[in-house]
């Protein structure tokens, strides 16, 4: 079986999510047989390194135009045809999410978004696991066509080095002219994007006001963590809406989620339940979040958070 993983490399850097894709392909191939072909759209700089994480073949499709779903789908479907791919894997992020529906419809193939497992086969067809009801449950979805496309949830597999760099082959493809024009990008530099973050420090209404976020950010800084918040906090603009996690915000699955002054309403938990470890700091011992937590401190966050930051700094300096 050929497994085609798609990598948007217009920024010339391989991100953790890209390595996860190659390694995921490798893990599927290891279990069910087959080879991983990585298709890298962009300049292809450093793309050979994907070999270290499991790609047997790396194909660069040169492109530096606007992100356009139709153009990218044309490129992917052509490479899928040429390589005879049976499984196409996209990242479940802002570059893969828009593509999956379009590509599935264009190629008339089964699709599953946000997958988190190495598929098992039932009746010769792969069955993928994904979160549903905003991570209140999981579904096992069987794809029915000979070719399938899935998008891989970030942070589901930690990439490991399993091979050596490979040569990059260049294939020129005319995907057509983009109809959607990117005219600018506004980015908060130096911040870890939430869905990819290993550690997240999140604040709720218990933080009392935006002027108090300093202690949260200091804690996040020692941990190298991304910052997040509950919905009411972003609704009143204490924090930008891009930090809102939960059922109607961003669904995250970090290794460590630290909640400060968040009560743990069901809609909030829905977005963070899949975190590996949850730490809750809340002054109310009855806060529902403690039931979903691994570790808890019942205390005033304004007293305990600076102490925790200090203890972490000491721990880091001893290491």
């Amino acid at each position: 079986m050929k497994i085609l993983v798609f990598i948007d490399n217009r920024k010339n850097i391989l991100k953790k999510a890209d390595l996860e894709l190659a390694y995921y392909g490798h893990s599927v191939a290891k279990k069910h047989g087959g080879d991983v072909v990585a298709m890298v759209v962009g300049s292809g700089v450093n793309a050979g390194d994907l070999g270290k994480f499991g790609a047997k073949e790396v194909i660069n499709v040169p492109y530096n135009g606007s992100y356009d779903v139709a153009v990218f789908s044309n490129m992917i479907s052509q490479i899928a045809d040429q390589t005879g791919a049976e499984l196409i894997v996209l990242p479940h992020n802002s570059s893969g999410k828009p593509l999956i529906g379009w590509l599935a419809s264009k190629m008339n193939i089964s699709s599953v978004t946000g997958v988190i497992n190495i598929p098992e086969y039932i009746d010769d067809k792969p069955v993928f696991k994904k979160g549903v009801f905003s991570s209140k449950a999981f579904a096992y979805v069987k794809t029915l066509t000979d070719i399938a496309v899935v998008s891989l949830m970030p942070n589901s597999f930690s990439p490991e080095e399993v091979g050596n760099p490979v040569d990059v082959k260049t294939i020129e493809i005319d995907g057509g002219l983009p109809k959607v024009k990117v005219v600018g990008v506004e980015k908060v530099e130096g911040k870890v994007p939430l869905p990819e973050a290993d550690i997240i420090v999140s604040g709720g209404r218990g933080m009392k006001g935006p002027e108090n976020w300093g202690i949260l950010e200091e804690l996040a800084e020692v941990l190298g963590a991304a910052t997040a918040c509950s919905r009411p906090v972003s609704d009143v603009n204490w924090r930008p809406h891009t930090e809102h996690v939960g059922q109607t915000g961003i669904v995250v699955r970090p290794n460590l989620y630290i909640a400060l002054g968040i009560s743990g309403a069901i809609q909030h938990l829905a977005g963070v339940n899949n975190s590996k470890t949850i730490v809750v700091i809340n002054k109310d011992p009855e806060a529902p979040f403690f039931k979903a937590a691994d570790y808890g401190i019942v205390a005033d966050l304004f007293e305990v958070v600076p102490e925790l930051t200090k203890a972490l700094k000491e721990y880091k300096s001893e290491k």
Partner: peptide, 26 residues
């Protein structure tokens, strides 16, 4: 339809929270 849901699963319950003394964040 091109896909079929074979089954559902509920997340594992957490085994219970470990409470830590606020005086001992270490």
């Amino acid at each position: 339809d091109l896909v079929e849901i074979v089954k559902y699963e509920l997340p594992k319950e957490k085994s219970g929270v470990k409470l830590i003394d606020p005086e001992n964040v270490k």
